[in-house]
Amino acid sequence: MLRDAHNRIINYVRLAVTDRCNLRCTYCMPENMQFLQRRELLTYEEIMAVMQPLAAAGVSKVRITGGEPFLRKDLMQLLTRLSAVFSEISITTNGVLTAPFIPQFKSLGITNINLSLDTLQRDKFKQITHRDQLPAVMHTLDNLLEHDLHVKLNMVVMGGVNTDELFDFAALTAAKPITIRFIEEMPFNGQGHAFSGQQWHYQRILDTLGSRYELQKLTDAPHSTSLNYHIPGHKGKIGVIAAYSRTFCGSCNRIRITPTGGFKTCLYGHDVLNVRDLIRSGAGSDQLMQEIQYALNSRAANGFEAEKEAKKENRHWDSMSMIGG
């Protein structure tokens, strides 16, 4: 089993398979985004070269992210290979290209999908994403529910942009068996401009929702990043993620691998090693795992410590489209 410097077991990896996206969300992607060349990305063989030893070391859950993962060619082939190794595979997607692949998910044991959606208004969707694709996303949402998949709808709360829709999103749980997750906005926009996570923090989000709805607290699962609630009479649930306040860091069980093979022990820290470069230099499974364990031995206790260390290097954070969330 992999353990970090604070004796926390690591059993969850978030794997970003591409930096490319078919949307241009302002809180996620820099205005002057320069996409990676194919040679810079981990190949599928290289992905399996690191994922298989991670699975052997006790990592049981993998979440596929991007960019938008369904822009990566032959993604379903990779998912098929991963399904033979990991007991739980989840996907985070913007939903624009996802619908045709939904019938295949269950055969691969994929039952949990996170759908990114920050507004229910078509004009505002175009304003946030610079693309007119809300109908495609809503079509994917309907298809996911028709196939009885577990859907978490992720809404990044942005002051002055979509805070007027908090009640509208919560209302979706009345008739739909979905979890709406309200997420504090983070500083990973790759543009260095202001973000609203400090003002629209998790407690303000909860207070706002609580002004209209009775929020009944649910028991949070181990390692949960969200505070979870239920509105009486509603089929779905509410979750609030303190992504900037970082209230959940103490139980973190996850690591991240970026599209270029960057290995992150914390979302708020920089890459601590590069598995792509190790593999291409001839490193085998044993050396890979030794390097990964060595990195975990120096892992920060929480996101605030990781941020402090990162700032010592005087570097800007990567954008969320590069990190993988």
Rank of each mutant, 00 (worst) to 15 (best):
M1Y: 11
L2T: 12
R3E: 14
N7Y: 11
N7M: 12
V13H: 02
V13S: 00
A16D: 09
A16I: 06
T18I: 09
D19E: 09
D19M: 03
R20F: 08
R24W: 04
T26H: 10
P30A: 07
P30Y: 08
P30W: 04
N32Q: 15
M33E: 14
Q34R: 15
Q37G: 09
E45H: 12
E46R: 06
I47V: 15
A49P: 07
P53Q: 08
L54H: 03
A56L: 13
V59E: 02
S60A: 08
K61Y: 10
K61S: 09
R63Q: 12
I64W: 00
T65R: 05
G67S: 03
E68Y: 10
E68L: 08
F70K: 09
R72Q: 14
K73C: 12
K73W: 08
L75P: 08
L75R: 04
L78P: 06
L79F: 11
L82I: 04
S83C: 11
S83A: 15
S87H: 13
S87F: 05
I89L: 13
S90G: 12
T92C: 11
N94Y: 05
L97C: 08
T98E: 02
F101T: 02
I102E: 10
K106H: 14
K106V: 14
K106N: 13
S107A: 15
L108E: 05
T111W: 01
N114E: 04
N114H: 04
S116C: 06
Q121L: 12
R122C: 04
D123G: 15
F125A: 05
K126N: 13
T129M: 05
T129G: 03
A136Q: 12
V137E: 03
H139F: 15
N143S: 15
L144C: 13
L145S: 10
V151F: 07
K152W: 07
L153C: 06
N154V: 10
M158L: 07
M158N: 09
M158T: 04
G160K: 15
V161C: 13
E165F: 09
L166F: 11
F167S: 10
F169R: 02
F169H: 05
A171L: 10
A175H: 12
P177N: 11
I180D: 00
E185D: 12
P187Q: 04
S196M: 03
Q203R: 04
L206W: 04
R212N: 03
E214F: 11
S224F: 01
L227V: 05
I231L: 02
I231S: 01
P232S: 11
G233C: 15
K235F: 08
I241A: 06
A242V: 04
A243N: 10
T247Q: 13
F248P: 00
F248C: 05
G250P: 01
N253M: 05
N253T: 10
I257A: 08
T260E: 15
G261M: 05
K264Q: 09
L267D: 00
Y268V: 00
G269F: 00
H270S: 12
H270T: 05
V275M: 03
L278I: 07
R280P: 10
G282F: 09
A283M: 12
A283R: 03
D286W: 06
L296K: 07
A300S: 12
E307A: 09
N314Y: 13
H316Y: 07
D318G: 01
